[in-house]
């Protein structure tokens, strides 16, 4: 089927790009490692842990989620470069499916995130992270939805704004509140009520909450249900919106 083949071809194109510049993956890996080394020790005396769980069991699952979020959000810069070089327009003048023009790069980003998340999980285990394997696999599904959503959002923004100077304030403006309200850095239980209420409007918050219970080995939990309930429609919505942006982009 042409659609599947187009997605495959355009995925392969972006994957080659990453393989030729693996430094990008290494740099992306650096962020969670820095959090692990320079931030997680601060939590030790601050966050009460119970039942043989280490502070990393609380912190790393959220970090995995935020890695997916970070990696997706900033992809808009890459597509601006491609718009400027006429690449997107060239594809649009061919019979290539508009969805494939979006999906190829998004799948590459998903691959990157899966590699980073897996490696980072393995790196964290000797430091005291004890993920439940099945729970972790289900978490990957949530992470895949999150990276598809944020990468599509990033590409959509890039396609609409077309200039780095216009993209930056929006990306930064989205980035910080979502991070602060996600409960990754510190659990939201420590927050005053109004802040907790605010967090419930943050899609990443549900994923972080689900990530913690999943890595602790609880699969049938309302928090996991909420994450899926939130992420599935959001993913569909954002992908549809970004595909529309591909269809409409004017150089």
């Amino acid at each position: 089927m042409k659609l599947v083949r187009d997605v495959g071809l355009l995925y392969q194109r972006k994957l080659m790009e990453t393989l030729r510049n693996p430094i990008y993956i290494v740099m992306s890996m650096l962020t969670p490692v820095l959090y692990l080394v320079l931030f997680s020790p601060l939590l030790k005396n601050l966050v009460p842990t119970t039942g043989g769980r280490s502070v990393l069991d609380l912190f790393v699952p959220g970090l995995l989620v935020i890695v997916a979020f970070f990696n997706g959000l900033f992809v808009g810069y890459g597509i601006i470069d491609e718009i400027r070089n006429g690449v997107i327009e060239r594809f649009r003048a061919t019979p290539t499916s508009r969805f494939a023009i979006l999906a190829g790069p998004v799948l590459r980003d998903t691959t990157n995130v899966l590699v980073i998340v897996t490696v980072f999980t393995l790196v964290s285990i000797p430091f005291g992270f004890h993920p439940d394997f099945v729970g972790w696999l289900i978490l990957l599904v949530i992470i895949i939805m999150l990276i598809i959503t944020t990468a599509s959002f990033g590409y959509g923004l890039g396609l609409i704004l077309k200039e780095e100077d216009r993209l930056s304030p929006i990306v930064q403006g989205v980035n910080l509140p979502i991070l602060l309200l996600s409960g990754v850095l510190l659990p939201m239980e420590l927050a005053p009520t109004w802040l907790q209420v605010l967090a419930h409007f943050n899609p990443v918050y549900y994923s972080v909450e689900a990530a913690r219970v999943l890595c602790a080995g609880t699969i049938w939990d309302a928090k996991v249900g909420y994450a899926f309930l939130f992420m599935v429609p959001l993913t569909v919505l954002v992908v549809a919106w970004a595909t529309r942006a591909v269809r409409r982009v004017v150089a």
Partner: peptide
């Protein structure tokens, strides 16, 4: 129409990392 035309825009269109 797309199958019957070739298009080279002002910006070119070559993918630089390939």
């Amino acid at each position: 129409v797309r199958r019957n035309i070739g298009y080279v825009g002002q910006a070119g269109g070559a993918d630089r990392p390939a």
